[in-house]
Design a protein around this nucleic acid. Sequence first.
DNA 1: CTTTCGGGATTTTTT
DNA 2: ATCCCGAAAG
Length: 735
Amino acid sequence: MTTHLLEGLNSAQREAVETIDGPLLIVAGPGSGKTRVITHRIAYLLREVRVSPYRILAVTFTNKAAREMQSRLDRLVGQRSKDLTVGTFHAFCALTLRKYGQHVGLDPGFSIFDDEDQQDLLKIAMEDAEVDPKKFNRRAVHSAISRAKSLLMDSKAMALRKSNYFEEIAARIYARYEELLTSNNAVDFDDLLLKTVHLLRNVAEVRERYQDRYVHMMIDEFQDTNICQYELAKIIVAKHRNICVVGDPDQSIYSWRNADIRNILSFKHDFPNARVVNLEENYRSTSNILEAAKGVIAANRQRLNNNIRTSKPGGSKIAIHEAFNEEDEAKFVLQQIDGLVRKNGVKLGDFAVMYRVNAQSRALEEACLRYGIKYRLVGGVRFYQRREVKDIIAYLRLINNPHDQVSILRVINVPTRGLGQKSLEQLEYWARTRNLSLYGAMEHIYLERTTGAAPTHPLQPRMAQSVVSFVALIEELRKESQQRDLVSLLDLLLERIAYKTYLEKDLEDAEERWDNIIELRNAAQDFKGLPPPTGLTSLLEHLALVSDVDNYEDAADSITLITLHQAKGLEFPVVFITGLEEGLLPHMRSMDSPEEIEEERRLFYVGITRAMERLFFTRAFRRGLAGGAGGPSIPSRFLQEVPQHLFTTPARLEPVGRASAPPLRMHTPPQPDKEEKPALVLRAGDKVKHSIFGEGVVVGLKGQGGDQEATVVFKNDIGMKRLLLSYAPLEKLSA
DNA sequence: CTTTCGGGATTTTTT
DNA sequence: ATCCCGAAAG
């Protein structure tokens, strides 16, 4: 058994796995087998030290990491992994507050406000605090409040610490925002952490229960934790002090979310007897790739030394390409992919295309569609924040927590109930004077009406009738939610509000939106088995804290389009990093501070170190930023930091002299088999075969020569695709 | 009260 | 280009 767990580990990795008593800091460079070490360490605790899985807490920073850890542990230790506590900080806190939230003023059904909800609430808070929204940017206020929360400051502490007028105003808004959250029986993301810290600090009974229970705690991506998260960890491990943190300062890319790199230094201070293990052996990348990464990161001044090294010598050099614009850039990427697939037999699942901002995915997606290459878009517009999905979620949240005013306001006119702004204002004012929540006031009207009492509210009769039927609906759903399973509750809701009809009548893309609702219904299926009220709560928690609904199974047959941030922790044989331009990477918004530039550089470093065998850098000479075309781009300064001998061809990295200079092609990429392939002559009605989509029939043709595009209907539910004849892997079947 | 139109501002990364 | 808000029309 022992041999199995420690087998194939190098000495540093072994030390990390076997050091189980007391605090441990693992500094893990990219590709150093970090996840392997963490999972093996947990398995070691379970199998060798005979620790009960119930006593181990492992927290990660993202859901993706948590899922990955859980599934690897399933394979290593089987059933027992089910009793481990594995999850993100936020999920762990949500669970804790569901159980013990009443100690910090939360009812069990509390809502978790996502970014959009937080903005909505903040808007109200700013109105209440009589702050001019034009003079004070909501996002700036929000980030100031968020920063304060991550530093464990309430609005009073913020007001005391204010150093300028903006912070004074922000503190005033913060105070009102907090009141509103409380009266909504809701928390934002920061509150999940903050209120859990308050809970554990103030309630000895709960604190001791947690401190006794968790004999071992592990934190992954420690460089990305904020002060509040670290405080939480310190409280939990105070008794046993078996805390193992794993991180890499060079991969710290979340300071904008208040992650605080000082935590690593504090750790050594707070746990002076901590063992430190450095994992420096890189098993992922070839030496050319690693040399590039080292060259780039060396330009950062603020860093602890760690020397990563690889045993994979040489490897392909890094290709660099300057495209004319973003379409051209996407075309280059897809041509390269196509070429590698054909000539080298690389699988689509081995490719990742990375970028700084989500908006860059569009050109790439379009190119994938044209070339008929399947892709998986990670992140992007999140499923749960689409309007129709959010509407239905708001209803569900309301069923769970009628004090959730943000959700009431969201659905009160979905479908239209004739309650406009004016009526709602009256209602809110009336509620406030009577010290009721919005729903409380509506309920009052409902009760007056059903008992035949004389109305005391200020609404017109027709408005009052709307309120009454709305409350009747919610009350019915609340009652049913105690009996029915989740899916049948959802079906009842959709039927009662005639949602499908509403979509068809009032919104564009009704069909697609309805499909999304069906998708939501599918997600609900997973919670169907739970006893009635629990299923709803669990689903809502899942929706609030899990950002993507992408399933990993499909990955094998598609290329991956992903932001650099999301790519952390992943690896791919072939990586493209696109948009290497000043203003994009490093991003414009980070240009005025050296610290932020260093973070951008770390982001680039993270991207480079995802690559195992091949790496491509691309940039566009002109990029169509929102609005105008944007001027000619300047190559990213980071490109100059890559040792030039690692490139396939000498790169022109200096800024272009004048705006009108013609774009230069750095090198012409091999055109994948263009000449070998006889131009395909097709007519509508011809049968064709595509290497991925299979057989189909041509239904239309457009364009000339190399740009000719065919519309093909494929069999087997694949449907209609538009393909460029010069690139798509199509062959004509004898008719 | 709701819908529609037009002007103005805004453009990062995610739990 | 897209979103958000306010004003005017329906």
